[in-house]
Amino acid sequence: MLAYIIQRIIRVIPQLLLISILAFIIIQLPPGDIVTRQIERLQASGVTVSEAQAQALIRQYGMDRPMYQRYLLWISNIITKFDFGYSYTFEKPVAQVIMERMGYTFAIALFAHIFTWTVAIPIGIYVAVKQYSIMDYIVTLVTFIGLAVPAFFLAMIIMYVALTKFGIRTGGLFSQEYMVLPWSWGKFVDLLKHMWLPIILLGTGGVAGTIRTMRAMMLDELRKQYVTVARAKGLSEFNVIVRYPTRLAINPILSSVMWLLPWLFSGGIILEIVLNLQTAGPALYAALRNQDMYMAGAYILITGALTAISAILSDVLLALSDPRIRFGGVEGA
C-alpha cells in the first residue's frame, strides 16, 4: 500500500512541474515586462522613479536574468518562503491577499456543497423510485434548465427581484457599518445574514448535475436482483430503498468529495464577482483587470496543485477499498 502511495506521489511530480511552468508562462504573457509596467504605474501616480530605483526593481524581479532563472527564482520563492510575488493592485504580497480571503471562499463553497447534497440526493432518490411519474418529468425538465443556467445568471435575477420586490440590496459579505470593524458577535451575525445567499446560489449550481447522477445510479441499482430479494423477504419499502441501493448509488457522489478541494478554491469565481464578495475570486478579477499577473499565476498553481492532490487522495481511497488496484491488477489510468 505504501509503495502504491509513493508511486502515485512520484507520478504527480512532473505533473505539478508542468502546471507551475504553465502558470509562470501565463504570468509572463502580457506584453511589456512587469518592471516597466510597475515603473509606469508609479510615474502615473506622481512618483518619480530614479535610475537606481529602477535598477533595484529590475534586480528584485530578476529581469536582468534569463527566463529559466526567473522561473527558478519564482518557484523557489514559492516553495521555500510561500512567496507568490507581489500584487501591485492590492499593494500586498499575493499570498497575503489570498490567505486573507481564503476562509470566506472555503466556508461559502463548503456550505454550498452541503446544501447541494441535502437538496439533490433526496430528490434524486425520489425521482428514481418514481420513474416516469409527473414529478420525474418536472424534475428532469428543471435539471435540464438548471444545467443551462450559470449561477451568476441566477444571481443577477435574484438580486434584481430582491431589490425591486423587497427593497433589499444583496451582495457583499458585510454591511457597510461592519466592513472595517474588528470581529465581534454583531459582525459575525451580519456575516451570516449575508452569507446565505451566495451559499444557496452556489449550491443550486450543483443541484441539477447531482440529481441527474443520483437518479441514473439509483435506477441502475433498483433494477438489480438483490432489491427484489429484499422486497421478497418482507423489508419495508423505505428500508429496501434506503438501506441497500442508496448506499451503492451514492458512491460516485461520495468519491467526488475529493474534487471538492480545488472546487472550494475556484468553483464560484464569477458568482463571487457578481455578488461582490470579499473572497479570493473577486481579488483575482481585480488583479487581472490591471494585468497584475502574479495573482493569476498563484491562483492557477494553487488550484492545479489542489486538483493533483485530490486525484492522489481519491486514488488512494479507491485503492483502500479495492484490493485489485492495490496489488496492481488494474493498470492505473
Partner: peptide, 24 residues
C-alpha cells in the same frame, strides 16, 4: 496522455480569465 492530464487539472474559469486578461 500526461499533457491531457495536466490540462484537465487546470481550473477552467481562472485560466480563461488569466489568458483573456493577458491579451494586449
Amino acid at each position: 496522455q500526461r499533457v491531457i492530464e495536466v490540462i484537465t487539472t487546470l481550473p477552467t474559469i481562472p485560466l480563461f480569465m488569466a489568458l483573456a486578461a493577458a491579451l494586449p
